[in-house]
């Protein structure tokens, strides 16, 4: 197991190098001159040249790439072109808010989504299923920004129960995590349901019932474990997506997270920030996949690692 993890971690390096190379190229191919954008609308050509020098964009592309690689190796991602603060600081400040928001959203949406999914599967095609799936379809189809605005209007503006924007206290987390988790809960519910419906038709479930186990044990012990594998995969994927910072939710709730940073960075062609963010997102995905793989083994001991 340990050997497997180490092997996977080593395999991570070439992937990151490839991602780094691609993202550098793509970012520099984006239309628009960052020096001009940074210098602003009423800048003269001399000013644009000064800014270009200041940002280090006057050097040839290969040289910029070497500088970027060298920097990354020394854990230095450069300075933001927009704010001139170190990229590591910019990202560091925003990582934790996004992380905690992701964790809370995942937590309630997984619990809620799986519960709905199981109930729907057990009482398939009866009213709990209908109610659950109606909720799930609404969750998927209701756009996050609209949900966020409605929640804010009702609970913050009209009722005054919760704060509108920011992330200072736990109460600030409630509305954004509901908004962010709604779609995930819906997806989890549908996934759990279909996975569970399949499992409940398997031979070993019939055997379990035949040997006289009570229904609760059949469902929780024999059903749930086996149904979990695809659900955990989906969970990992969703977690990875949310960690990238939801642009929409972070905008509506003015959340100081990575999604807003990414948008600002793309608007201003802030190369160093975009590069570091994409690298970070890839790293997160790879790590989450690894964790998911390890979880497989915990859920189903018959899975072996090589």
């Amino acid at each position: 197991m340990t050997q497997y993890i180490v092997k996977r971690l080593l395999g991570l390096l070439p992937t990151l190098v490839l991602v780094g190379f691609l993202v550098f190229l793509i970012v520099h191919l984006l239309p628009g001159d960052p020096a001009r954008l940074a210098a602003g609308q009423d800048a003269t050509p001399e000013t644009v040249e000064l800014v270009r020098k200041d940002l280090g964009l006057d050097k040839p592309l290969p040289q910029q790439f070497l500088r970027f690689v060298n920097g990354v190796l020394h854990w230095d991602f450069g300075q933001s072109l927009r704010t001139k603060r170190p990229v590591a600081t910019e990202i560091g400040e925003r990582f934790m808010p996004t992380f905690w928001l992701t964790v809370w959203s995942m937590l309630w949406s997984v619990v809620f989504g799986m519960a709905i999914g199981i109930v729907s599967a057990v009482w398939r095609n009866r009213w709990p299923d209908r109610v659950g799936m109606t909720l799930a379809v609404s969750g998927i189809s209701f756009p996050a920004f609209a949900l966020g605005m409605v929640l804010m209007q009702v609970f913050a503006v009209e009722l005054n129960w919760l704060p509108t924007v920011g992330n200072d206290t736990w109460r600030h987390y409630i509305l954004p995590s509901i908004t962010l988790g709604a779609a995930v809960a819906a997806i989890m519910a549908r996934f759990t349901r279909s996975s569970f419906v399949d499992i409940l038709g398997e031979d070993f479930i019939r055997t379990a019932r035949a040997k006289g186990l009570d229904e609760q044990r059949v469902i929780v012990k024999h059903g749930l474990r086996n149904a979990l594998i695809p659900v955990v995969t989906m969970m990992g994927l969703q977690f990875g997506f949310l960690l990238g910072g939801s642009i929409v939710v972070e905008k509506v709730f003015n959340w100081p997270g990575l999604g807003r940073l990414l948008i600002d960075a793309v608007d201003m062609r802030d190369y160093p920030v975009i590069q570091a963010l994409v690298l970070l997102f890839s790293l997160e995905f790879i790590l989450i996949n690894l964790i998911v793989d390890v979880l497989y083994g915990l859920i189903n001991p018959t899975i072996r690692y090589r």
Binding site: V157, P163, T164, V165, K251, N254
Partner: peptide, 17 residues
Amino acid sequence: KPVVDNNSRAALMQTGE
């Protein structure tokens, strides 16, 4: 306080924040 979203800014004004 920078608040990017138009509706959120309006909400902040309505709540007195």
